[in-house]
Each structure stands twice: as structure tokens, then as C-alpha cells.
Design a protein around this nucleic acid. Sequence first.
DNA 1: ACGGGCCTCCCCCGCACGGGGGAGACGCTC
DNA 2: GAGCGTCTCCCCCGTGCGGGGGAGGCCCGT
Lengths: 218, 218
Amino acid sequence: MPVTVLLVDDEPLVRAGLRAVLAAQPDIEVVGEAADGAAVIPLVRRLRPDVVAMDVRMPLMDGIEATRAVLRTVPEPPRILVVTTFEDDEYVYAALRAGADGFLLKRARPAEIVHAVRLVAEGDSLLFPASVRRLAARYGNGDRPARAVLERARLTEREAEVLRLMTRGLSNAEIAGRLVVGAETVKSHVSSVLAKLGARDRTQAVIVAYESGFVEPG
Amino acid sequence: MPVTVLLVDDEPLVRAGLRAVLAAQPDIEVVGEAADGAAVIPLVRRLRPDVVAMDVRMPLMDGIEATRAVLRTVPEPPRILVVTTFEDDEYVYAALRAGADGFLLKRARPAEIVHAVRLVAEGDSLLFPASVRRLAARYGNGDRPARAVLERARLTEREAEVLRLMTRGLSNAEIAGRLVVGAETVKSHVSSVLAKLGARDRTQAVIVAYESGFVEPG
DNA sequence: ACGGGCCTCCCCCGCACGGGGGAGACGCTC
DNA sequence: GAGCGTCTCCCCCGTGCGGGGGAGGCCCGT
């Protein structure tokens, strides 16, 4: 049973490119396309794709709104992979708050694109992929509703515990003391957390934890 | 004009100790004492201290509630320095959300105590003092209202900008690229931010930024 | 004219961090 | 019994990070 993907982008060229890259994979099937966010919901209901590759900038309804709409109205909604350009970086965090599961740069190499679709389809998050790391948002005056992204990041109990302590500002050594395990063990868990979250370092992991609602701040 | 301090702790011994340490300083004056949070508000209104050294655990009204009450009801409220024990670590973040300006361990050395009072009185924050670094909260199911602690942390424009980029997960080199300055310059600003926030590393700084409302997450 | 704050950049230095490997023990499912 | 995931710990290694200094230029207020 292949991964089914719905492409949403206002540029036919981009859709064609994505289709070409993804359809070349035996385990991925492009089941539909849409040119605007407004058309996404009925398509999702009908096609029930596993993943929606969602462009950010679109004429009628942008990707953020569309993401929010899909997640709010469709039961058992698909994973949302937001497709951005380098210029859209300010939308990254807004999209995360809207409930997106991953980000992908249009200029990413085909292998990265395929990888991202598979990852998100499997329930993992891809919040700071290598190609997005250089991005940063100016603001991101976002939208309140945030889905618990990390719940689907497949963190194990131990990893979640380690992440929680990371969000309290503890160093690896301090975490080791708290959990009464070796420092090498903590490093191991931290590495897993970073990989699963797509974070480069503990700071990015903590940011993801806050933005995704893993911790509730003031 | 010396710094005026109000001591709030249910243990007379602790009050006496704080009084002895602080009164020995020529620039610090202890103007009053209270044994419970419930007695704080009228005392603050009457004495108008610069700093309230507030214990966390107290019989009638704890330090968190008292902090919130003071900041809500008193115009031009004093700075709140929360005095904790090693066991009270779970209250640290709740206190921060309530609007506290700094934290201090009772077991801290006299010089550290004096330093903390001066820092907070000057408007700086002391959120991760050296003596509190080993602490960590389990949860911190806190209270929504959070005062903009960082507004009084005396960050310069540039420092605030650097902190903002830190909260977006950027490395020093990336920040340097964004601001079109040298990497050494960024390091300098980062160090200033860490010092002013009492943070040990950029991760703690980002946590403080989130907890204090410097960034609004999802 | 002088000081003070801010921004900029420089040096040296130690260390925690994170990547890339591997490996043994346990419990689970098939 | 074999396989898998989790948790635990180990190695090496590079480097980004942060502390500790310092220093020059700029604006601003007195």
C-alpha cells in the first residue's frame, strides 16, 4: 500500500515537478492536484491522501489557512508537508502553529523531497530539515490553535522525558543526574530527539517543543 | 538613596539571616518584614520598597500568589526576588509567569544574595542564577498572566534583535549573516544577553524568552 | 572637552555538544 | 528461536559555544 499524496500549488510547473519526482518512486502515488487552498478540503475528503504537499503562497487561500482548515474540518486528517521557498521563511512558524508536520524547500534535491514525504507519511515530523535550517522567521504572529506535533514525532517515553528536561534548561550532565543514567546515555537520547525533530541542536529542539505545544509557556 | 527591601518569609530565622546579610551593605536598607504573603500587599503600599524578597512556601498565601497579587494591585510595583530552596524547584517557572524578576537559593553565599538584590533593584532579571542552575521544574502548570520580564532586562536594541534570532534557532554564524556583522560581534551580543538574563547558554536564553512572553508561541 | 553607553571586532582558551560509529541486555511479537 | 525496538553505555572526533580579557569608533548629554 503506497503513500498517497495530494499536491497543492498554484504553479502547474511546480506540481508537474513534484509529480515527476514523487511518481518515480514505487511506494509513492500522486492521487490528485489542486491549484489553490480553497479547493483542498473537498479533494482531501474524496481522495483521503496520506500526505498533502501544500504550497504556502496561493491566490485565494494560502497554505497556512488551508492547513488549518483541513485539520479542523476533516476527521483523521492527512499529514501536511508545507512547501516553501526561501522567501517564505516568515511563514514557517505560522505553519507549524497551524498544525503542519513538515517543511520542504522547493529547491531541495529530489532525494530530499522523497525523503520528506516518506518521513511525514510515517508520522514523523520534519520541522528543521537540513534545507530549511538556514531559514528563519522574522516574526510569525501566528494563530493560536497548535496541534501537538510532537505527539506524532514518535518520541519514545525516555526521549520525551529527556526533551522535557531540555526545555527546562538542563545540560546533558544535569539530565543524566536527574534520570540516574550515564552521560553517554543522555547524549544518545538527545541525538535521537534531534533527529526525530529535525533539529540541529538542543536550542532548536526546545523551540520546536514550545511552538508545537509540547510545553505550555506563560 | 539606598535600595529598600521588604523581607517576606514565614521563618524568622531566615528573615534574620537575610536582614543581617543585606543590612551590612551601605547601599541596601531592609525596611520591613512579613511572615506571610497575605500581609505583603498593605506593607508594600505603605513602605514602597524597591525589592521584595519573597519566600515561595508560606502558610496562608504562597509566594507565587503573593507575587501575582502585588503586581496586579499595586501601581508601580516593586521588583520581586523569589527566594527558593532546592526542593521548591517546581515553582520556579510558575513564579516567572507570575511576574517574578529573579530567583535566589537560600543556601546561596551572602555575596550572591547581595548581588541578586542589587541586580534586581537595577531592573535586571536574574532568572537562571548560578545557584539555581542545577534546579529544574517538573512541570510548572502555571498561570497565564506573564509580565514582559525581558522589557526590564535592559536589553539594548541590538541585543534584543540577537535574542529574537536566537529564538528562531539560528546559530551565531547565521545571525552574523542576517545582521551583516562579524561573528565576533554576535558572540559579544550573545554573551551580553546571557549575562543579563542570567542564562548559562543560548538554550536557557530561549526558554526565558518564551516563558517571559518575549516571543509568543502557539 | 570629557565621560558613558552602545556597537563593533579581536585574542586565547576550555569544554559541552553533537555526529558517526558500535554493542550488550531486555522485553515484545511473530 | 529469530527479529525488532528500546534503553543503556562506549569509542573517536570536530567544532560551535561561551568566558575572559581588551580595544577603537560613534553618538549623546553635560
